[in-house]
Design a protein around this nucleic acid. Sequence first.
DNA 1: GCTTGTGAACGATTTCACAGCC
DNA 2: GGCTGTGAAATCGTTCACAAGC
Lengths: 223, 223
Amino acid sequence: MKRKKTQVGVPTIERIVRYCRYLERLYYVEKRDVISSAEIGEALGLKPTQVRKDLSYFGEIGKRGVGYSVEELYFHLMGILPCPKDCRLFKIALFGVGRLGKALLDYEMFSKRGIDIVAVFDKNRQKVGKTINGRYIYHIDEVETVLRAQNVSIAIICVPAAEAQSVIDRIVGSGVIKGILNFAPVDLTVPKDILVSNMDISAELEKLIYFIREKEYGQPLSV
Amino acid sequence: MKRKKTQVGVPTIERIVRYCRYLERLYYVEKRDVISSAEIGEALGLKPTQVRKDLSYFGEIGKRGVGYSVEELYFHLMGILPCPKDCRLFKIALFGVGRLGKALLDYEMFSKRGIDIVAVFDKNRQKVGKTINGRYIYHIDEVETVLRAQNVSIAIICVPAAEAQSVIDRIVGSGVIKGILNFAPVDLTVPKDILVSNMDISAELEKLIYFIREKEYGQPLSV
DNA sequence: GCTTGTGAACGATTTCACAGCC
DNA sequence: GGCTGTGAAATCGTTCACAAGC
């Protein structure tokens, strides 16, 4: 099997996810038949050429002079993205049942997309053994056993920043985890064959404020 | 005043936030005196040249042959980033007191960074009038009055996807909001002078799974 | 010796320009 | 006329190579 040199880049995949969401609404709610790259671009704040380039990576889906069939395009993109079909293949565990962890456990969008969290861990013995949203809470000491038994491949980290790295080390030690979604505001050190996606809320806010200030005052500060 | 052509890019600012966090620990916890770009890069998974290039945008802070003074660099970067000094300038309101909204209201990292949410809104009359973590919950109908009175400039959106756009329209109507941090999994339509930062949790997970699959199986799907 | 700062080279991503098709 | 698909050009971001300074 020949390895293609030109893989599709990260920004494109991020936009594919957004196209997919937009088309979902167009298909189920607005019941549109066809859509143009110009209109998609308008809705998502992108240039039409950007939209067409992205879509062209996955084949010729549109009709020239007409546009894209909403149904065809939607199911085509759904086939490219992993969910919900493959989410059962990639089982997910959540670490840290604080407020954020609890919020994620019944996050509407997860269940809607077929994303299911199969195991939950905490280090607090008071929480261990209870169930939350139908999931049994394991103690962090059981991590190796449970992750292997359930064949979990993705970990969501919602523990405090100070504990994140030690939790990660134990998770990585289990040898089954392939990807980590990290909500703790620290940079984790992991073996480089494991993918990490950081969702750093306060970092995002700081970034936002930086650019607001830059826009307001022309210059961020004395540069 | 001359407008510089080369503004610092988004990826650089994202890394500056990370340097800042790392240096904070180095300064207060590990009490290091100097640090090299190589070591910073090691800790954050970046090449030393990347670190130096980023830092050089904001002046010559290091000493050749020696490295960077942790103290000097830390406070220098703190000066570039908006928090916590400017967070009072940029007041924040939160919309939607569901599980996620509640989680954010006492997110440790916010208070630690001086980020303070000054007003909270919900459309549920049962919640309105109560206080949560010391913040009075306003009804969404009061949005114009409260935002103007408090001079709020940033909105955090934690309402369900279906309601996000209508909430946004009202917020934008108030005329004081300059930036939005959006947790609802939809693409919002806003006037282009307003900055939007999306934190789409399920999109991030889908992206992660896509790239895990690509890595595992060489190709994401039949492309 | 060692480490920073930076123009130049390289690589990735976006945008343009236009051919191809309905 | 309209809209897509795509190579080429432009832009943006990262990495290299090396000069400058401790």
